[in-house]
């Protein structure tokens, strides 16, 4: 599940993954978006990552709509979530939106009976290529103060860090599944 404030690059992450995976490993990418390409409900991308001891691993990647007023839809998509990539917008002027979105994630998860501290999740500091970005230290101090969450720098438009984030969360999800996921 890709979560984060509006226009932070969640859909761009999925689009990059879609363009860079072999046709046999992926299904069709679905975007339920408005005419101006803002996500209305979700984007969906099914992805196979290979086999472990004869078990095929298949992931379903979803994004949530980032805009604040789509909260009702956002909550629905969190039902049954196995892991989260929180995509933060590195631009200084989006710092408040990042923090608000992270709080919203924690709150919405709680409503579905999940605890953010107990589910697999990673943070992606996106848009590192833009000029007015906060330093990673600043972002970390606000969004990952204990440093306990694996975090990655990324530029989703050109793909930097996209697969690092995906692999990290996929690995955490599989480890959780092996442990029993309870």
């Amino acid at each position: 599940m890709y979560y984060g404030p509006g226009l932070c690059g969640k859909t761009t992450n999925l689009q990059y993954i879609y363009t860079r995976t072999s046709p046999q490993a992926k299904g069709k990418m679905i975007s339920l978006a408005t005419e101006t390409e803002r996500t209305l409900f979700f984007d969906f991308l099914p992805l196979s990552l290979g086999e472990i001891r004869g078990f095929k691993t298949r992931f379903h990647l979803y994004t949530v709509p980032g805009q604040v007023f789509y909260d009702a839809s956002r909550k629905l998509i969190l039902k049954g979530v196995d892991g989260v990539v929180f995509v933060a917008d590195s631009q200084i002027e989006r710092m408040e939106a990042n923090m608000e979105s992270l709080e919203n994630l924690r709150y919405n998860l709680q409503e579905q009976g999940y605890d953010l501290d107990r589910i697999p999740w990673v943070i992606q500091y996106n848009k590192r290529d833009l000029p007015s970005v906060a330093s990673v230290e600043e972002l970390r101090s606000l969004l990952n103060p204990t440093g306990a969450v694996p975090d990655f720098e990324a530029t989703a438009t050109s793909g930097g860090g996209v697969f690092d984030s995906l692999k990290a969360v996929a690995k955490l999800v599989l480890t959780e599944l092996k442990r029993g996921g309870k």
Binding site: I52, K167, K171, L174, T175
Partner: peptide, 11 residues
């Protein structure tokens, strides 16, 4: 029966 190494190998 899946080990951490099995998961690592996938990636």
């Amino acid at each position: 029966e899946i080990t951490d190494d099995d998961i690592d190998n996938l990636f």
